[in-house]
């Protein structure tokens, strides 16, 4: 079975689609948690404390995400290599023929997101980039505010969320196609919900660094 998956483009795409959609589900939850920052320091910090008080759930989600990410990146790289091998000489006249920039840049936006994930974990989870955060681990609010007052950090986060938005602008609808979901009415609905979701995610996540940087949260 494993070998069949490795050699079938449809099955590899199904792996990408399932892992991608699971990660989208996580992102929605993650964003909802982040937005608690607008309710004040206590709301965010007590939410973080609650999560850390349930290590079994926390670690199940973390391991699940890691499996999704590895499966997604592995099949993404495998497909991207095969797809590049399938092409021959590039055309002299380049024409998009109805394809969107987002759909043509999935591998690039995907790789940038991967870089971002590494930085993000080093920043807030393991705190390598800011060892001073170790001293007061319960104060997530303070950590976020101190970080995003720095223009470069705020900018990096907003740019990365634009990449996530671009990746998902194509990715969510594509995942439904890869899994063979088609219905004359619901497919149109899925397409709309996909676009709204990706805009919500990009704006929702970006709102935190933007508001901190411009002093609306301090």
């Amino acid at each position: 079975m494993m070998r069949a998956v490795l050699h079938s483009s449809v099955l590899l795409k199904a792996v990408m689609a399932v892992s991608g959609l699971l990660m989208v589900g996580f992102l929605l939850g993650h964003m909802a948690g982040n937005l608690l920052i607008f309710l004040g320091q206590d709301a965010l910090n007590s939410y973080a404390a609650k999560l850390h008080s349930m290590p079994s759930i926390l670690w199940t989600v973390r391991i699940g995400l890691l499996v999704c990410l590895l499966a997604h990146v592995f099949s993404g790289i495998k497909l991207a290599i095969k797809n590049r091998q399938s092409r021959s000489t590039p055309y002299k006249v380049k024409h998009p023929n109805a394809s969107t920039l987002a759909s043509r840049s999935m591998a690039i936006t995907g790789c940038l997101i991967l870089l971002y994930i590494c930085y993000h974990l080093a920043h807030f989870t393991v705190k390598w980039t800011h060892p001073e955060f170790q001293q007061n681990p319960g104060d997530v609010y303070g950590m976020v505010v101190t970080s995003f007052q720095h223009p470069l950090i705020a900018f990096t986060y907003v740019l990365s969320m634009a990449m996530v938005g671009a990746h998902l602008y194509h990715g969510i609808k594509s995942a439904f196609d890869s899994l063979g979901f088609y219905h004359p009415f619901y497919s149109v609905l899925v397409c709309r919900i996909a676009k709204v979701t990706c805009v919500l995610l990009a704006l929702g996540f970006s709102s935190v660094p933007v508001c901190v940087y411009f002093g609306l949260i301090s």
Partner: peptide, 10 residues
């Protein structure tokens, strides 16, 4: 040797 579908719809 054909590639996979990226749903670009071109």
């Amino acid at each position: 040797g054909f590639g996979s579908c990226s749903q670009t719809k071109s």
